[in-house]
C-alpha cells in the first residue's frame, strides 16, 4: 500500500514540474502550449548557359597571281616586269558578336581542300569576347579576324579551296 501511495506521489510531483523548452521554429502561445512551425525548401534555379552569337562573313574571294619572270633586258641584265607569286583577298573578314550570358572564346580553323594552299588568321585565330550580360544589344562584345591564304594554286586546283570552322566555347 505504501508503495502505491509513494508511486502516486512521485507521478503527481513529476506532472507538476514545468519545463521551459527553447526551440527554433516554435512559438509559445499565451496558454503555454507550443506550436511547431514547418517550412519547406524550394530550390532556386540558376540560369542555364545560352550561347548566342552573330557570325558575319564576307564574300571570301581570293585570287592567286602566279609569278612572272618578266622580259630579259640585256642592257641592265635584269628581268623587266618580274613579279613574285601573290594572293589578294576580298571580303575575307569574319566578325563574331557575343549575345550570350557567358564569356566566349571563338577559335578559327582553316581546313584546306587543296594541299598546296594554307590559311592563316589575324589575332592568331582566336577571339575572346566578354559576356553580354549588362550590355545593350547594339553594344554587344564584338571582334573580327581576317583570313589570309598562302601557298600556290594552279588552274587545275582553282575553285573551292577550303572551309573555315569557328569553334565557340565558354571561357
Amino acid at each position: 500500500m505504501k508503495r502505491i501511495l509513494f508511486l502516486a506521489f512521485v507521478i503527481t510531483l513529476m506532472m507538476s514540474i514545468s519545463v521551459t523548452v527553447f526551440a527554433e521554429n516554435s512559438v509559445t502561445s499565451d496558454s503555454g502550449t507550443t506550436i511547431d512551425i514547418s517550412a519547406t525548401f524550394k530550390a532556386g534555379s540558376t540560369a542555364e548557359d545560352v550561347i548566342s552569337v552573330d557570325i558575319a562573313w564576307g564574300a571570301m574571294e581570293f585570287e592567286f597571281s602566279e609569278g612572272v619572270d618578266g622580259v630579259w633586258d640585256p642592257s641592265t641584265h635584269q628581268y623587266m616586269g618580274a613579279a613574285e607569286s601573290s594572293w589578294s583577298a576580298s571580303g575575307n573578314e569574319i566578325t563574331v558578336t557575343n549575345h550570350s550570358n557567358v564569356a566566349i572564346k571563338a577559335t578559327f580553323t582553316y581546313t584546306g581542300e587543296v594541299e598546296t594552299v594554307y590559311g592563316t588568321f589575324t589575332n592568331d585565330g582566336v577571339l575572346a569576347l566578354a559576356t553580354a550580360v549588362g550590355t545593350a544589344r547594339d553594344a554587344a562584345p564584338s571582334d573580327s579576324v581576317a583570313l589570309t591564304l598562302g601557298g600556290s594554286l594552279t588552274a587545275d586546283t582553282a575553285g573551292k579551296v577550303g572551309t573555315v570552322t569557328i569553334t565557340i566555347a565558354k571561357q
Binding site: S52, V53, G58
Partner: peptide, 18 residues
Amino acid sequence: KMESPEGGGAINVTYQTS
C-alpha cells in the same frame, strides 16, 4: 536582318549547352 558584306553571309547561332 543582320548586315553582311556583299557576297557574304550572316547567321545567328543560338543554343543551350545541354
